[in-house]
Amino acid sequence: MLAWHWIGLAFVTLSVGYTVWCFNRLVFNRLRVAEAWSGIDVQLKRRSSLVPNLVLALRAYMAHERSALESLTEKRSLAQRNEHAGAGQRGLSETGLSNALTQVFVAAEAYPQLKADSNFLALQRTLTDLENQIQMSRRYYNGAVRELNVVVQSIPSNLVARLFQFRAAEYFALADAREGQSPKLGF
């Protein structure tokens, strides 16, 4: 009888220990996802704040490309409106902004005097660097989301996740895989 008491006590102790371990793992992963999202958010806000400067630099040269500039301004506004949306919705609007920026840079290729403008070149370099940083941040975020989602959805840690109301996180992804491809430039 005494042996069963010790076995029961050991089982309860192990169960509580496992629950604490799972809970701490869930908290760690949730905080890593939040930190990774913060990194993406900072880069997206930096990019969005550069768009008005880019539009000003381009207006003088690209009078015939008004629709591209209006599209860029519209996509930036949409991205700013979705600033507090979830990763999925934010990903859609930010993808639109990335595509609009790509279209503007492709259109700028037709203006040799613009390509020689130091302000435009500096903005273009900064935006290119930001796009690379956003890609790195997105990969880090999606990796953190994957780790959290594995713990939230795997047995038996999913029981602890459900008990403490942990939810799977949303990936920050392109709306259409083709949007991540480089544009085709025809010369």
Rank of each mutant, 00 (worst) to 15 (best):
residue 1 M to T: 06
residue 2 L to T: 02
residue 5 H to L: 10
residue 9 L to H: 01
residue 10 A to G: 03
residue 13 T to G: 09
residue 14 L to R: 02
residue 14 L to H: 01
residue 21 W to F: 13
residue 22 C to K: 06
residue 25 R to K: 14
residue 26 L to Q: 07
residue 27 V to I: 15
residue 27 V to S: 13
residue 29 N to R: 15
residue 30 R to C: 05
residue 34 A to N: 14
residue 36 A to K: 10
residue 37 W to Q: 11
residue 38 S to C: 12
residue 39 G to D: 14
residue 42 V to F: 07
residue 42 V to P: 04
residue 43 Q to F: 08
residue 44 L to Q: 12
residue 44 L to D: 11
residue 45 K to D: 13
residue 48 S to K: 07
residue 48 S to A: 15
residue 52 P to L: 11
residue 54 L to G: 00
residue 59 R to P: 09
residue 59 R to F: 12
residue 63 A to M: 07
residue 64 H to V: 01
residue 66 R to E: 08
residue 66 R to M: 04
residue 67 S to D: 10
residue 70 E to Y: 00
residue 70 E to P: 06
residue 71 S to L: 02
residue 72 L to W: 03
residue 73 T to W: 00
residue 77 S to G: 15
residue 79 A to L: 11
residue 85 A to M: 11
residue 86 G to I: 02
residue 89 Q to V: 06
residue 90 R to N: 06
residue 90 R to P: 11
residue 93 S to H: 04
residue 94 E to D: 13
residue 95 T to S: 06
residue 95 T to Y: 05
residue 96 G to R: 08
residue 98 S to G: 14
residue 102 T to G: 02
residue 106 V to T: 03
residue 108 A to I: 07
residue 111 Y to E: 12
residue 117 D to H: 06
residue 120 F to H: 03
residue 123 L to I: 08
residue 126 T to R: 12
residue 130 L to P: 03
residue 133 Q to F: 03
residue 134 I to Q: 13
residue 136 M to C: 10
residue 136 M to E: 15
residue 138 R to Y: 08
residue 138 R to F: 05
residue 139 R to I: 10
residue 143 G to H: 07
residue 143 G to R: 13
residue 145 V to F: 13
residue 148 L to V: 08
residue 150 V to T: 12
residue 151 V to C: 02
residue 151 V to K: 06
residue 153 Q to W: 02
residue 155 I to V: 15
residue 155 I to K: 04
residue 155 I to S: 14
residue 156 P to F: 11
residue 159 L to T: 10
residue 163 L to E: 04
residue 163 L to R: 11
residue 168 A to N: 01
residue 168 A to R: 09
residue 170 E to S: 07
residue 171 Y to Q: 03
residue 171 Y to W: 07
residue 173 A to Y: 05
residue 174 L to N: 01
residue 176 D to M: 04
residue 177 A to F: 08
residue 179 E to K: 08
residue 182 S to C: 01
residue 185 L to G: 00
residue 185 L to K: 00
residue 186 G to D: 00
residue 187 F to R: 10
